[in-house]
């Protein structure tokens, strides 16, 4: 079974969007095109419970067929990679489920198989997760309140690339900040396999006021599209996961 490339947007934020289109709506549109949207909400160390600003975190992720988690800064590294891996497994499980339905008839999914038979199917999902190619577009909220969290974010992203590069499949990452100066998002790191070289990226960012999460996601969608288009011009692309994922 060939899976092509898994595509994910990873949104890292600490607050509520306050400008432009509703992010959950954009996330739905991304998911429809086979791009999963994962969201990580960062809590202030002083916050003991989930503030209202982070309510939309789960909403965006579920609309984007992805995974969400709300964490304190210290847990960011581990969270970034579990969320990414979990979302991969989910997507691949979706793909395998679809195949299963074709083989076993309409109502069968992995969950409905007896536990004894699940093992082998999950082995296939595991194998796919290890070997498939992955593209992650990281969107980092750089509004004022995020300033003190950016070093942690940077560390977490380097760590993510270490984890993902231990896989057999290939990885590509790009990082955008939002808001940009004039545009919704601003490119920080263009598509690359290793994030180890990003150590100085975040120090240059001027952090600013508004949080246009919706428009930022939409721009991310456009960037993914542009890239695919560019590649199709160069060579015939494999049919990718986007058709199978839904």
């Amino acid at each position: 079974m060939r899976t092509g490339t898994l595509k994910q947007v990873l949104l890292i934020t600490d607050g509520c969007s306050n400008q432009g289109e509703h992010p959950a709506h954009v996330a739905t549109m991304l998911a429809e095109q086979g791009i999963t949207v994962n969201v990580i909400g960062i809590l202030e160390d002083t916050q003991s419970e989930q503030p209202e600003g982070l309510m939309e975190v789960e909403e965006i992720a579920s609309s984007g067929q992805g995974v969400s988690q709300i964490v304190y800064q210290q847990a960011l590294s581990q969270t970034v990679q579990t969320v990414t891996k979990q979302a991969m497994t989910q997507t691949l499980q979706g793909v395998v489920n679809k195949e299963l339905k074709q083989i076993l008839g309409n109502s069968q999914s992995i969950e409905e198989l007896p536990p004894d038979q699940r093992g082998e199917v999950m082995e296939v999902v595991d194998e796919l997760g290890e070997t498939c190619d992955l593209e992650v577009l990281v969107l980092v909220d750089t509004s004022a309140s995020m300033t003190n969290k950016l070093p942690t974010v940077q560390e977490a992203l380097i760590d993510l690339s270490i984890s993902m590069n231990a896989r057999i499949g290939r990885n590509r990452f790009s990082i955008y900040q939002f808001p940009g100066k004039r545009k919704p998002i601003h490119l920080l790191v263009d598509w690359t396999e290793q994030l180890s070289s990003i150590s100085s990226v975040f120090s240059k960012i001027a952090t600013g006021g508004v949080t246009p999460t919706g428009p930022a996601l939409k721009e991310a969608m456009y960037q993914f599209g542009k890239k695919t288009l560019k590649r199709r011009l160069w060579r015939n692309d494999d049919p990718s996961i986007e058709e199978a994922g839904n």
Partner: peptide
Amino acid sequence: SQMSSISSEVN
């Protein structure tokens, strides 16, 4: 809640 991890641990 994650079927995938339970299954692979069982494996």
